[in-house]
Simulated assay, not measured.
Amino acid sequence: MKSLRILRWLPFVVMFAVAMVDLLAGRSLVFLPLLTLGPAFASLSGGVRRTAMVGAVALAICVPMAMRNDVLFTWENNLTMVSIAGVTAASMLASRLRLQRERELASVRRVAEAAQRVLLRPVPRRAGDVRVGLSYTSASAESQIGGDLYEIVTTPHGVRLLIGDVQGKGLAAVETAAWVLGAFREAAYDEADLGHIGERLEASLARHLNGEQFVTAIVGEIHDDALSLVNFGHPPPLLIRADGETHCIEPPEPALPLGLGAFDVGVAKGHRSAFTGGDRVLFFTDGVIEARDPSGTFYPLAERARLVLGAEPQAALDALRADLVAHTGGPLLDDAAMLLLHRRAR
């Protein structure tokens, strides 16, 4: 808001400065052509009418200043006034195009928000005795959705979850994420085994993906005091014990990413990890661990995992995301999703 106020007053400040410099320089030097900067700057933040008003103010300043310098009807001053009028007209057109672009961008953002609500639905903040936190940051500045995906559903077989990362970016990645999420939401209710859910996801992607595209993903199920996972080439989650001890939940037999099932035959095998009272499990996509600072150092997630201790899952993830953005010193270059499960101490 402060920068917007500065831009709105900038044309008048510039024209006042030009007038003062012209007064101080005397009649030997004429700076009136610089008044064209007023309407030029006005097009950056103002509307068409405001830009026209700034142009009129520039002409109103030019006339008495020209009279003072005895150049009112000279060829040079006439050219200056024509220049002010021409720049004002061009700035009015630029302002109109800018406003049109802003309206289109606002419409795109509304569509993106609607798509996000459909594609990436809000996850439940509580699943039994497990509390859930979610953080999602899209690498695209113009949208809130990208190639990372997540879901938590309560089924007759228990609470099941999915987190994944689609190869590539843009609309193609969003479309692939929609296929994976749709297949998971159906298979999670139908299939009793996590490996069979993976088969359903693989079959869905085989009908849509071309070439060597793939999706890394983890399919999980929450049990009493345990967590079952099937890892399809995705970064392993971090298990953070109540005492602060942290380690990765590495799969004993990692499966290939989804979409590459033609290179592997068989059902992916799951594995269990203890998940007891006070424990936290942090799922994340590679946009988190591959984020770099200006010197090229990767984000040390394992070292910063302590940030998720001692707070509610959502507040903990918000703090971790703020630390991630501070590490990069700017916008993230890849989508970054984090899902935090906290089993309350009994």
Rank of each mutant, 00 (worst) to 15 (best):
N210V: 15
Q213I: 09
F214A: 02
V215S: 00
T216S: 15
T216H: 07
A217M: 01
I218D: 01
G220E: 00
G220A: 01
G220C: 06
E221H: 12
E221W: 09
E221C: 13
H223I: 01
D224G: 13
D225I: 06
D225F: 10
A226L: 11
L227S: 10
L227K: 08
L227N: 02
S228A: 12
S228Q: 08
S228Y: 03
L229E: 13
V230I: 03
F232H: 15
G233I: 00
P235G: 12
P237E: 08
L238M: 07
L239T: 00
I240S: 14
R241F: 03
A242S: 14
A242F: 06
A242Y: 05
D243Y: 14
D243Q: 13
D243F: 14
G244Y: 12
H247M: 09
H247G: 06
C248E: 15
I249S: 06
I249M: 15
P251E: 02
P254L: 05
P254K: 10
A255G: 08
A255W: 14
P257E: 00
P257D: 05
G259K: 01
G259A: 09
G259V: 01
L260K: 11
F263L: 15
F263D: 11
G266P: 07
G266E: 06
V267K: 12
G270A: 05
A274C: 08
A274Y: 09
F275Q: 11
F275M: 11
T276E: 14
T276D: 11
G277Y: 02
G277W: 02
G277N: 00
G278Y: 03
D279L: 03
D279T: 09
F284E: 00
F284P: 00
T285H: 04
T285I: 01
D286R: 04
V288N: 00
I289G: 07
I289V: 15
I289D: 08
A291L: 06
D293A: 09
P294C: 09
P294N: 10
P294M: 06
S295P: 00
S295R: 13
G296E: 03
G296K: 04
T297H: 13
F298N: 09
